[in-house]
């Protein structure tokens, strides 16, 4: 810091360098902006004061008690697992669907289109109920050669727990949305890029994997961050499967026993907010990572010379 400043002195002082005189203006004042900020801080402070001391319904003692309750933190972990697993599945399947929709093969394009039509066209809640009924509709899962007796078979009930049915239900639904996000990202890449890589003798798959998809990341990551946060909250619908170990269902069950719903809603919100905040930090670093090669972005020391 000190070296930078002293290095700039001659430049800033026309008396020494003899260059053109620097502008020494009085910075613009922002009285309205400042007054507004003060007003908002006062309002927020009075709201917090009021919530802390005058509203017994918030029951902060119970909030403090339940926020670290083992049942709640375990449920928070289940919600986190549901989110991560179903998003990983959705991103993988969604990328595959996007590539299929852009592929030169009309059969693949058709399959992807039908998938999107069904999974985007029906509510996720309805899909989750369907997944819950899977064991009723298909009692056995069989792998074998059709029209012969060769093969193995499992009962659906024993093979797929409610948790995994919830993950599958959330992932398959989300994949349809991820497919559109990934496709938009891929279309945002200059066609000259795939032309250049094709001209170098790279195959379509290599062009996608090495050239188009990495460049589309910059466009894909921000809306995907949105989807992750949205998924975190959508997990509260898994009660439709029915899975009752997630954060929202668990806190609701507890409040049904205590007849005191408000503190538990606050507890659930605190956990959801904690996870969202962590996700937002992660997104910031991912975005920096994929901004490599764009002008004016500091990608850390040693990245370019």
């Amino acid at each position: 810091m000190a070296t930078t400043r002293s290095a700039r002195v001659p430049e800033a002082d026309p008396g020494i360098s003899g260059g053109p005189e620097r502008i020494r203006a009085i910075p613009l004042r922002h009285p309205v902006r400042n007054a507004l900020a003060v007003l908002l801080v006062l309002l927020a402070a009075s709201f917090i004061w009021d919530a802390a001391f005058n509203r017994p319904a918030y029951d902060w003692l119970s909030v403090g008690k339940y926020v670290f309750d083992i049942r709640v933190s375990q449920a928070a972990l289940v919600t986190l697992e549901l989110t991560v697993l179903s998003m990983v599945g959705a991103i993988l399947l969604g990328s595959l669907l996007a590539v299929m929709r852009l592929s030169p093969n009309p059969v693949l394009r058709g399959i992807a289109w039908v998938y999107l039509w069904i999974f985007r066209g029906t509510p996720v809640y309805v899909q989750l109920v369907f997944w819950g009924l899977l064991a009723t509709i298909y009692r056995f899962i069989s792998v074998g050669i059709p029209f012969t007796d060769i093969g193995v078979s499992w009962t659906t009930q024993d093979t797929l727990s409610v948790f995994w049915l919830a993950v599958i239900g959330l992932a398959l639904n989300e994949a349809a949305y991820m497919a559109e996000i990934v496709r938009a990202g891929m279309l945002s890449v200059d066609p000259g890029q795939s032309e250049a890589s094709t001209a170098l003798g790279m195959s379509w798959a290599q062009t996608m994997r090495r050239i188009v998809i990495p460049q589309s990341m910059r466009v894909i990551i921000p809306p995907t961050g949105n989807e992750v946060i949205s998924m975190l909250k959508t997990t509260s619908l898994v009660t439709a499967v029915p899975l009752s170990t997630d954060l929202y269902t668990r806190t609701r069950d507890i409040s049904a026993e205590t007849f005191n719903p408000i503190p538990l809603l606050i507890v659930a919100s605190i956990w959801y907010l904690l996870f969202t905040s962590i996700l937002m930090i992660g997104q910031y670093f991912l975005e920096r990572r994929f901004a490599r090669g764009t002008r004016f972005v500091d990608v850390g020391p040693g990245a370019s010379s």
Binding site: Q193, A196, F290
Partner: peptide, 11 residues
């Protein structure tokens, strides 16, 4: 190419 078409995400 006229517009170079270098891969911007690679050095």
């Amino acid at each position: 190419f006229q517009r170079f078409n270098l891969f911007p995400h690679l050095t």
